[in-house]
Amino acid sequence: MTAADQHALRRERALRKRLEWRILLKHPASLLMRLAAYTAAFLTVGVLLYLLVHNIVRGIPHLNGNLFAWKYSSENLSLVPALINTLIMTALALLLAVPIGVGAAIYLVEYSQQTSKIIRVIRLTTETLAGIPSIVYGLFGSLFFVRFLGWGMSLIAGTCTMAIVILPLVIRSTEEALLAVPDAWREASYALGAGKLRTVFTVVLPAAIPGILAGIILATGRIVGESAAVMYTAGSVAEIPSGRNFFRDPVRTLAVHMYILSSEGLHPGSSYATGLVLMVMVLILNTLSRYFAKRLRTKAGQKDANE
């Protein structure tokens, strides 16, 4: 594009803009509609920015050594035990939910006829599971794992509850990832003589990995941010479980720690700092998840283009 072309383009744009404004001034209702849309968008972004800045400004001065002491005490209000508990619980819950979720998605996408009754039931219940609020999961966990199975408020009870919470998330993102793999790949694999199982494990799953990973990371974010479902299943003891009773020890996760700190209302500084750590963790996880989801999309897009 030559400089003259660019100049012409700019002129045309400026002209169009002026024309647009002239139309808007002639139609006050249209102007109003536009203003409403602009205001709403501004408000949304404004609220988010205010929340972020407020939290960062108040939180950073209190991010000190005390907060990261190895052991929690009522003086240092350390978040380290809660953080480690959260990591342990995340790892265990993923260990439980990912194989089941991925297996379920494989069945839903690769094996089933999409119209069969059993598929409709499975889809309906998976959707129901996704819509259940955390507090109901918390109640169920307290009834089933804590009381009925007699595990007490413990790491394992909280972990199992969270595994159910994230199951629909894992299923849905794996499903999407599998659906993004072009059918031509499967057909090519069959044409080479591979069976269904081999096709799934050597062709479809590897191609779907970024999408599955996106789902797993999103699930991690959900576990890290969750409080209502774990408060009365995992308990609120700010110590790292150890020794023989590892799984049966009650533990406090980071989100619950944040809730307890802030509802006590005695330590606003530490609450801000803890909230900041929590928020940054979840935001990093979500951004990572979006990155992988995008990679899956672009990869699948390239495949389509190559066909």
């Binding site: 972004v45 988010l48 929340l51 407020h54 409080s227 802030s262 979840v282």
Partner: peptide
């Protein structure tokens, strides 16, 4: 930009909103 902002909003944990 706004899509990213909305995505961030969706990810912030309840307790952080609650404290705010």
């Amino acid at each position: 930009f706004i899509n990213a902002a909305v995505g961030l909003m969706a990810g912030i944990p309840s307790v952080v909103y609650g404290y705010f």
